[in-house]
Simulated scan of single mutants.
Amino acid sequence: MMFLNKNKPKIFCISFQRTGTTSVGHFFKDFGYKVAGYDSKRSVEWSTKRFLGDLDSIFLSKDFKNNQVFEDNPWWEEDFYKILYHKFSDAKFILFTRDSDKWFDSMINHSKGKTLGNTFRHSKIYKREEEYYNSFSDKNYYKSIKEIDNLLEINNTHREHYKAIYNLRNKEVIDFFNFYNPNSLFVGQLEDVNKWKKLGAFFNIQVPDNYSIHANKSNKLF
Rank of each mutant, 00 (worst) to 15 (best):
N178C: 07
Y133M: 01
K65E: 11
K92S: 12
F16D: 02
T48R: 14
N156Y: 13
E77W: 10
N140H: 13
K102R: 14
Y132P: 02
F28G: 07
N155I: 04
K195W: 01
R128C: 10
Y81A: 04
K198H: 10
S100A: 14
E78Q: 09
N7V: 03
S184K: 11
M1H: 09
F136G: 06
V193F: 01
F80M: 11
Q68H: 13
N73C: 07
S184W: 02
D101Q: 10
E131I: 12
M2D: 01
S43H: 13
Q17T: 06
Y141F: 15
N67S: 13
N140Q: 11
Y38K: 02
D209A: 12
F203C: 08
H158A: 01
L190P: 03
N216V: 08
S212F: 01
L95M: 10
N134V: 01
N181V: 11
K146R: 15
N66E: 15
R128V: 04
K8C: 10
F120D: 02
E130N: 14
V173C: 05
N134D: 06
I11N: 03
W196N: 07
Y162T: 00
G20E: 02
K10C: 11
N118D: 07
R50I: 08
V69I: 13
R42A: 13
F51G: 02
Y85P: 06
F96A: 09
N140T: 10
F27S: 10
L84E: 04
R42P: 03
I108M: 13
Y180T: 08
L52R: 11
L168K: 09
E147H: 04
D56M: 10
N73H: 12
H110I: 00
Y85E: 05
R98C: 09
S15N: 02
K124N: 08
A215M: 10
H110Q: 03
D209L: 06
L151T: 04
P208H: 09
W75V: 04
K92H: 14
K195T: 09
T115P: 01
N140W: 04
H26D: 10
P208W: 08
Y180V: 08
W75T: 08
R128Q: 15
L4T: 04
K87R: 15
D90C: 06
N183I: 05
N134T: 08
K198T: 11
L60H: 15
T19I: 05
L151G: 00
N167E: 12
